[in-house]
Design a protein around this nucleic acid. Structure first.
Length: 494
RNA sequence: GGGCUGGUAGCUCAACGGUAGAGCAGGAGACUUUUAAUCUCUUGGUUCUGGGUUCGAAUCCCAGCCGGCCCA
């Protein structure tokens, strides 16, 4: 590349020398009559499309970022990349005049470039476009992360996701798995007659789950509103309205902590199927997730990896998935006599088993804590936990034989709750009573308008929820929810 | 909220009380099929911020800011 003028001293002192040089090259391109930030450029599709169309002697048009430059003097090799792949471009000085080669010298790694030329195969077997023309398309005024190690700084990967996408293949793989999964879910449900709907995010009462909502204000009606925390109640209103199979996939918001498994906004699938029950819903989810696993991994085996990238666990999604009652799982973990013990004895037993128990906990909370630590966290392959205590699930129908239980499942895979499914409670009076009898730290808000809808008659139905972020984590092998969200919530920098 | 841990050149990382370095990127040069190209030379730093200890601080201490992991 060409001789550079000495930079003004202040440019270098800010650590801005790299930017200053690129700005100079951008200006030099403009001075030579070449727009450094170009416009329309006709291409044979994405880089992957160009590779698919590749043939020796065929004229190809491609565009992308310059991600490598191997300078041989009169011969240059460039890598042109986008998120779909990489293709090599060969530029031979013999094919261009001096002005053109001067312009070529003003290009930098990271710039967008369009090329046209014939395909050929180098003697090392690399598919290559022999550039007959090249067109600068956009100047990168700042350098990209290092070519070999990519961008490793976790914070910067999340705050400047575009740099992560440009430089980290693994991030592209995980983040692009998500839209494929979302699309496949829609296709799966639509093929079974489910209708997709969109319901309001701004709600007067945020209910359907026990969680703190975000609050905002609507000026026109001078009323406080909440961002939804669940989709459930509106979809049930649609069951009342006569739509027998309905689903929504959309964003929920919970004003709670941020962690490896929690983002304040997250995507939920909920589906409701009139005249079905929780077991039919379990079958549906089982089939759907297996299809998704085949789509993403081509297999029902899943390998989870630790921070070093080594295989940590192997999961097997082969059907049929195990189904077991909550009480039986507790008894197996804590002793057959568990449910005959009084509260004090249960607390003592739980602590002896290494489960942290606080004095304030009620009986079902002690049992639930024990369940989470000794069953849920230790479960790898899919497990449908069924027939939970009714206190845990106020929107589900009670079991006919044992009204202390509800007809529900909780799907657990790899120690995480992936999906709940219910036989939905459709008796308005029972529903009111169940919402009023909630106890413990977090309770669900009472939505009178929802109860009014139930009084008009809701068909018996099965319902499911699927946390899409966690499902994608599972299927794509991501360790953190932030790895499956393009722009995860971060604390603003001061 | 608590515990542990991290922040050094554009990027990836060293230096762990005694002159802040390397690789890549950048700059100059050589090279007409390279591919982490190679070879010679070379520029580049408010060591996150603010205090403190010390003859001397990237390093030790305190506070803060922003992350990561674990716990609640």
């Amino acid at each position: 590349m060409p001789e550079a003028e000495p930079l003004p001293p202040d440019a270098a002192s800010h650590g801005g020398e790299l930017v200053a040089r690129r700005r100079e090259k951008s200006a030099a391109l403009a001075a030579a009559g070449i727009a450094p930030f170009g416009g329309r450029f006709s291409v044979d599709g994405s880089v992957a499309d160009v590779r698919a169309a590749f043939a020796e002697g065929k004229t190809l048009r491609a565009a992308g970022r310059i991600t490598a430059h191997r300078d041989m003097g009169k011969s240059h090799f460039l890598d042109l990349s986008d998120a779909t792949g990489r293709i090599q471009v060969y530029v031979n000085a013999k094919g261009f005049d001096l002005e053109q080669m001067a312009a070529f010298g003003l290009l930098d790694l990271g710039d967008f470039l369009g090329v046209e030329g014939e395909g050929f195969v180098t003697r090392t077997g690399e598919w290559t476009i022999r550039a007959a023309k090249f067109t600068p398309l956009a100047k990168a005024l700042r350098p990209l992360p290092e070519k070999w190690h990519g961008l490793a700084d976790v914070e910067q990967r999340y705050r400047q996701r575009y740099l992560d996408l440009v430089s980290n293949e693994e991030s592209r793989r995980v983040l692009l798995a998500r839209p494929r999964i979302v699309r496949a879910i829609r296709e799966f449900l639509e093929a079974r007659g489910f209708v997709e709907v969109e319901t309001p995010i701004l709600q007067a009462v945020a209910s359907g789950a026990a969680a703190r909502p975000f609050t905002t204000h609507h000026n026109a009606y001078d009323s406080d509103l909440h961002l939804r925390i669940a989709l459930e109640l509106n979809l049930k209103r649609l069951l009342v309205g006569g739509i027998p199979k309905v689903f929504e996939m959309g964003r929920n918001f919970r004003n709670e902590g941020v962690s490896r498994r929690h983002n304040p906004e997250f995507t939920m699938l909920e589906a409701y199927w009139a005249y079905a029950d929780f077991e039919m819903m379990a079958d549906l989810v089982e089939e759907m997730i297996c299809q998704l696993a085949m789509l993403v991994n081509g297999s029902l085996g899943i390998e989870t990896r630790d921070a070093e990238g080594n295989v940590a666990k192997r999961l097997n999604l082969t059907r049929p998935w195990r189904r077991a009652r909550y009480r039986d799982l507790i008894a197996a973990a804590a002793g057959d006599d568990w449910f005959t013990l009084d509260l004090a004895a249960q607390k003592e037993r739980a602590r002896a088993l290494g489960v942290q128990i606080s004095e304030a906990m009620e009986a079902h909370e002690v049992t639930q804590q024990l369940f989470e630590k000794l069953v849920e966290e230790k479960t790898l392959d899919p497990l449908y936990v069924t027939h939970l205590p009714k206190e845990l699930v106020p929107l589900a129908k009670q079991n006919v034989e044992d009204p202390s239980l509800v007809d529900v499942y909780e799907l657990i895979i790899n120690g995480q709750e992936i999906s709940p499914g219910y036989s939905e409670l459709n008796d308005p009076d029972v529903q009111r009573a169940r919402l009023l009898e909630q106890s413990g730290g977090e309770t669900m808000a009472l939505d009178e308008d929802f109860l009014l809808a139930l009084e008009h008659g809701m068909p018996p139905a099965g319902g499911i929820g699927v946390g899409i972020d966690r499902l994608v984590m599972l299927l794509a092998g991501a360790e953190s929810i932030r790895d499956v969200i393009l722009f995860p919530h971060m604390k603003p920098k001061a």
